[in-house]
Design a protein around this nucleic acid. Structure first.
Length: 274
DNA sequence: TGGGCTGTTGCAAG
DNA sequence: ACTTGCAACAGCCC
């Protein structure tokens, strides 16, 4: 499921619902999802805390609380955070952790159970190295054409592998990597150091625009994604190459190809992308 | 039926 | 030091 636009879609919804609400109880069905606390410590830390805000960097969601510690979540492939105002409603499918609130409930569901939840300090570094070493957020001001060009220049790895690297830019996953490279007219297998400065600028802008367009549409539900209200996103309509292998390119009619780059299924138009 | 695929990333091995 | 490949897991599709 979730790359930056999906996590942002969830964040925006939760940020309208959670602040001011208090956690009254925490139920953990699958303790191994909690990475840096025991189940008991996790429950004790969160119970009676009040939500302040929902923040995001890259694909990480941070639910800020009134105490010295807050909750950080990575949805990995199939994680879902769903808020329901009516606590008596049945839990959504595959619920693994449930937060009972004074005004409803928040559930963490996860089909493949690959997600991560951490307790982090409310201020300063999280101490979670993968978070603390993230590159600039893909839709933030620090992700600029010059920055991307400098990062691409330093390596001969495939350009797709570089933009998937979360220490280079935070939030790009497999779907939006393919989409952005299509928009920028760059073959995913191209060596990064062979991408020109003008193409880097195009790619930077393409990453930003596919992300913002998807947020606008409520995220991409290709298979598992549900937003914070439990609804599917509408961005599949906008995808130009992802999931379209074997279909004609929307620009030139050439058949979209499927290959493997950096170990990931990769779709591209052999005519539009050089 | 069974094998291969899936939106992420930590870790081991090359 | 850098890069690749697999494992973690469960479900879906052919």
């Amino acid at each position: 499921m979730p790359e930056l636009p999906e996590v942002e879609t969830v964040r925006r919804y939760l940020d309208t619902k959670l602040p001011g609400d208090r956690i009254t109880a925490v139920t953990v069905d699958l303790p191994r999802l909690i990475k840096n606390r025991t189940e008991d410590a996790f429950r004790r830390t969160l119970t009676d805390r009040v939500f302040r805000a929902a923040d995001r960097k890259g694909k990480y969601l941070i639910l800020r609380l009134d105490g010295p510690e807050s909750l950080m979540v990575h949805l990995r492939m199939t994680g879902r955070l769903v808020f329901q105002e009516d606590e008596s409603l049945p839990d959504p499918p595959y619920t693994r952790i449930r937060f009972s609130l004074e005004r409803g409930k928040l559930t963490y569901g996860d089909v493949r159970t690959l997600g991560d939840l951490w307790i982090i300090p409310s201020e300063g570094k999280t101490g979670i190295s993968r978070y603390d070493t993230l590159g600039p957020d893909a839709i933030g001001d620090a992700f600029t054409p010059d920055y991307l060009y400098r990062k691409l220049k330093g390596t001969s790895r495939a350009v797709k592998a570089v933009i998937l690297d979360q220490t280079v830019v935070a939030g790009v996953g497999n779907i939006y990597a393919d989409e952005a490279l299509f928009l920028a007219g760059i073959r995913p297998s191209r060596h990064a150091d062979r991408v020109t400065k003008a193409e880097s600028a195009k790619l930077c802008e393409a990453i930003r625009s596919v992300m913002l367009g998807s947020i606008e549409a409520g995220g991409t539900t290709f298979r598992d994604f549900l937003d914070g209200a439990g609804h599917e996103g509408g961005n599949v309509e906008n995808l130009r190459v992802y999931g379209r292998d074997g279909e004609p390119c929307t620009v030139c009619g050439t058949e979209i190809q499927l290959t493997k780059i950096a170990g990931r299924g990769t779709r591209y138009c052999p005519k539009c992308q050089k």
